[in-house]
Amino acid sequence: MRVPPDFGISDAALHDVSVASTLQAVKPPEAEIMAALERCGYDADTIFAIKLAFEEAVTNAVKHGNHFDPAKRVFLRWYVDPDRVVLMVRDQGCGFCPAAVPDPTADENLERPSGRGIMLMHSYMTRVLYNPAGNEVWMYKDNTARSRGNSPT
């Protein structure tokens, strides 16, 4: 799947990498993304939000998508500029239906120990989209602190 057209980014502008399907192997590209956010002047709260959403997406890919099979790959694409961030995570699993994941904040689900990653991704990012198969997630975030004129000094 190419970058969703309404994200306003050309497909060619995205960084593209695939790594072994382990949480350790994802760390170098994650560090690269975080460094780009700092270079672009994102504030600490926004970086926290993007890091959390990215890590939840990657954990889902490694754990639920690729079932911790280190022979499988995780595919990452990303774009960072001072106004917005685009992140894509794809696994080699058979996908899932995001709508079927129960709302973890409903009273009856509050004590369930799992199922909060996806809702946190939605809470912290401006937009979250899945491909039809459900094994590829695209996330977009505006740098709202910058648009409010709250750029860090």
């Binding site: 890091k51 959390l52 890590e55 939840e56 120990p113 799992s114 909060r116 990653g117």
Partner: peptide, 11 residues
């Protein structure tokens, strides 16, 4: 920093 899995651990 924490992951959602840590929330499950606390529950």
């Amino acid at each position: 920093h924490l992951a959602s899995a840590a929330l499950g651990m606390l529950i």
